Computed example of a mutant assay.
Amino acid sequence: MGFWGTYVVLRSDEPPAHVLPAIAALQGAVSRDGPWSAGWRVWVVRDSAGSLPDDLLEQLHAVTGSPVLLGRVLDSDAVHVVATGTSVRRWEVWLQLKYAMGHLLTPPASFDDDNYLGDDWRDPAYEAQVEVTRLEILAQAPGGMTGARSAQAWARDACLVPDTVEAIASVLDGDETFAEGLFFQLLQRLGLNPE
């Protein structure tokens, strides 16, 4: 079983539970060891701590006035990254979107009324819905060079020194056994981890 939870990346000396004390799930946030760029911290909020509000990014940004980045991990298969800056608007990207699809759209069971249909059984209607949903997500949260340009602009707005667009794109389009590995590679490419 993989990790389910959210990484909260803040430029703040205060933990997220102090920044937004009304959100109970943030009380369980644990600091993730760095090193991180000056003033930045990364916090881990496990799903077992409770649910986070859909507008957590906006709430954190409103209270801190600083750039914020969140990484929502789905069973270590995929990460949904969203961020906002001081002058750069919200952007988002998925790391390993193809592995997220089974979490976003529940696949059909490989059984009919009485029979196991086999390991290679496919449901064409489900596969078509997955492709439609995948394309909708990519229209809103593009990866590759487009996503990398947005990520680089956010990093510069956050007063970080990001890597090249090509280096960032290689992470956005990467593949790892544990999606969190790609997330931390992305933080490094954005200049949040100076090593």
Score class of each variant (00 low, 15 high):
M1T: 13
W4K: 08
T6H: 00
Y7P: 05
Y7V: 05
Y7E: 13
V8Y: 02
L10G: 04
S12Q: 13
E14D: 15
L20P: 04
L26R: 05
L26D: 10
Q27F: 03
G28N: 12
A29R: 01
S31P: 07
R32L: 14
G34A: 09
S37A: 15
S37E: 15
V42D: 05
V44F: 04
V45K: 04
V45W: 03
V45N: 08
R46E: 15
D47Y: 01
D47R: 09
D47F: 00
S48H: 12
G50H: 07
G50E: 11
E58I: 07
Q59E: 14
L60M: 12
L60T: 13
H61A: 15
H61T: 13
H61I: 00
S66A: 14
L69Y: 08
V73P: 09
L74N: 06
D75W: 13
V81L: 07
V81I: 13
V81F: 05
V82Q: 12
V82L: 08
A83Y: 08
T84Q: 10
T86G: 10
V88S: 12
W91F: 15
W91Q: 04
E92A: 12
V93N: 10
Q96R: 03
L97V: 10
A100I: 09
M101S: 02
L105F: 07
A109T: 10
D113A: 14
D114S: 00
L117S: 02
A125I: 14
A128T: 14
V130R: 08
V130T: 08
T133N: 01
R134I: 02
R134L: 01
L135G: 02
A139V: 00
A141R: 11
P142Q: 11
G144V: 01
G144M: 03
T146C: 04
T146V: 15
T146M: 09
R149M: 14
S150T: 00
W154D: 11
W154L: 12
A155R: 09
V161I: 12
D163T: 01
D163H: 11
I168D: 11
A169I: 03
S170K: 05
V171K: 01
E176T: 03
T177I: 08
F178C: 09
E180R: 12
E180M: 07
F184E: 13
Q185I: 00
L186E: 10
G191E: 09
G191I: 06
L192P: 10
L192S: 07
